[in-house]
């Protein structure tokens, strides 16, 4: 009886996910095996063309570049989010600081990116100051650069990294850091050997929350980048809107899904891995026997 009720509760969720997630995904999978229609759309004819196109050198280059940019942006984001989350967790004004991290969400994402365009533009805020103070003779090209893409990506996804890190660090027992210091660790050693391993979960969550959306970024490179900073997301959008190649769009999207899923699985496996191997433990046990002779209790 109880079990039946449980299924009943899960029903709406199953329905929701089936209609709005599983079915669309299956449609995309289906489209990826069809032939491109001459005027957009598809021909109802099985074909592997879309999957063969995935291997073209141009696309591989874009994928590699996207991966590298996503990695760099994620690492920068985490490097900024970690000390921020730490300070927040140790602060007496947690609620205020949390609010400050969440405030950007109150403004539309695109508006915030447009704001960066205003700041970085040729006649923008930064150049204005540089010109007025006489540090430069003519405007610097800040907007539509790879640097601008990285900057804005980090800006946009920083809160997504700070929040999970904050919540894990907040649960961390800071006495452990004192214990580490007491036992002879420097401040840095205490953080690397005790804090980081114990907030691994938060670091992984922050990594995923940052890396996955950046890997699929579309609007940021489009608005603040140039042709060279195009990412996989822009490539896919172009296939859809310019080349009107629905099957290729579908196979590319699935590629992104596939790569990120593999990434998540690897990370989950890494996180679950024990600190030391079983062989090392066995060796330790054997050594006791040898060292102590009598074995002890």
């Amino acid at each position: 009886m109880k079990r039946n009720l449980g299924n009943l509760y899960a029903g709406p969720m199953i329905l929701w996910l089936t209609v709005f997630f599983t079915v669309p995904l299956l449609i995309i999978v289906g489209f990826s095996f069809l032939r491109k229609g001459l005027y957009g759309g598809v021909e109802w004819q099985a074909s592997l063309d879309a999957w063969k196109a995935v291997g073209t050198p141009n696309l591989v280059a874009v994928t590699v570049k996207t991966f590298v940019v996503s990695m760099v942006a994620t690492v920068i984001t985490l490097a900024l989010a970690l000390p921020t989350g730490y300070r927040m967790a140790r602060s007496k004004r947690q609620v205020l600081l949390l609010l400050l991290v969440i405030v950007p969400f109150w403004t539309n994402f695109l508006l915030r990116v447009f704001a960066w365009m205003v700041i970085l533009g040729n006649n923008g805020f930064v150049n204005d100051i540089l010109l007025r103070t006489g540090l430069v003779k003519s405007s610097l090209r800040l907007l539509n650069t790879q640097g601008a893409v990285l900057l804005v990506l980090v800006y946009v996804y920083l809160p997504y990294a700070i929040l999970p890190l904050f919540s894990t660090i907040d649960k961390f027992d800071f006495t452990l850091l004192e214990a580490a210091r007491d036992l002879g660790a420097s401040k840095l050693q205490a953080i690397v050997r005790v804090l980081l391993p114990n907030i691994k979960g938060g670091i992984f969550a922050a990594f995923l929350f940052t890396f996955i959306p950046i890997f699929g970024a579309y609007a940021v490179p489009l608005l603040v980048g140039d042709m060279n900073s195009y990412m996989l997301g822009n490539f896919i959008a172009d296939q859809l809107t310019k080349a009107r190649n629905l099957p290729f769009t579908a196979s590319l999207s699935l590629l992104v899904t596939f790569v990120t899923t593999i990434g998540i699985l690897i990370l989950m496996r890494l996180q679950a891995a024990p600190e030391r191997s079983a062989e090392a433990d066995a060796a330790i046990a054997a050594d006791y026997a040898a060292a102590n002779g009598n074995g002890g209790r």
């Binding site: 006495t175 452990l176 004192e178 114990n198 600190e275 433990d281």
Partner: peptide
């Protein structure tokens, strides 16, 4: 060296 009230053992280590 200190023996802490809460023990403060490192939970991630054996």
């Amino acid at each position: 060296n200190t023996v802490f009230q809460s023990y403060a053992l490192f939970p991630h280590l054996s």
